[in-house]
């Protein structure tokens, strides 16, 4: 076998299609069509990497998944390196007890990985949401191992234009998320085992009715009258 291919296989960056790897347990996403698309759901533990712009719905996508975990485990929900300030009202509205939310805002970007690793090793954090500015391959690998060992879920959010650069990161699932008028458009970049190649449009009128574009039919039924300006 080609030496390069062999070394890539050793580093688990490459695997063969017929190889049936144990995929780990999957957990429901909270959206029926998405479960079908991902062949079961999000990985129960480990790292999920998300490439998107901030504000297209990248965190909202995981809200049912996080809430379901929270109901089961009552672990801490930790935010590290948030780009803006956390708004408590939203998270309480989503059913999280604010006492179980911890925000970590390291001043130096290199402390983000350290803080995340400490949280994972502590065993009391079940869900970690991470906005890393920079992360080396070795740090990513350490975080993945720590997350799997702790049985925790680590969500890593990155700008969408960097996904070429970060493809090699060791993760359980890598997604690209783009906005769509009725929800979001999801593309699996990397997943253990075989995965669908075509992007999937997730409609979430039911879950997030106030955050979808009104369809033309609902616009037509809109009973707002335009009053002519009195001259």
């Amino acid at each position: 076998m080609n030496a390069i291919i062999h070394s890539l296989k050793q580093r688990r960056l490459l695997w063969q299609g017929r190889q049936q790897e144990s995929l780990g347990t999957l957990s429901e996403t909270g959206y029926a069509t998405l479960d079908e698309y991902l062949q079961g759901g999000f990985p129960e533990q480990g790292v999920i990497q998300v490439f998107s712009d901030i504000g297209v719905g990248e965190v909202r996508l995981f809200c049912p998944f996080l809430h379901q975990r929270y109901q089961r485990q009552r672990g801490l929900l930790v935010f590290i390196g948030l780009p803006y300030q956390l708004h408590a009202e939203f998270w309480q509205e989503q059913g999280f007890d604010l006492q179980d939310i911890l925000v970590i805002a390291p001043k130096k970007p290199e402390d983000v990985a350290w803080a995340a690793e400490q949280c994972l090793h502590s065993g009391c954090c079940d869900m970690l949401l991470l906005w890393p500015e920079k992360l080396t391959y070795a740090q990513g690998r350490r975080l993945q191992l720590a997350a799997v060992a702790a049985g925790a879920s680590l969500l890593m959010f990155r700008p969408i234009d960097t996904y070429q650069q970060w493809q090699g990161m060791p993760v359980e699932l890598s997604l690209a998320i783009r906005p769509s008028t009725s929800g979001i458009e999801l593309e699996v970049l990397k997943m253990k085992g075989p995965f669908p190649r075509i992007p999937h449009t997730l409609h979430w009128q039911r879950q997030w009715p106030h955050l979808v574009m009104p369809t033309s039919s609902s616009l037509a039924n809109d009973n707002v009258l335009a009053f002519p300006r009195v001259s």
Partner: peptide, 11 residues
């Protein structure tokens, strides 16, 4: 908590 609130606020 009020409904329809954003998850992040600008400083």
């Amino acid at each position: 908590a009020q409904p329809k609130r954003p998850s992040l606020l600008l400083p």
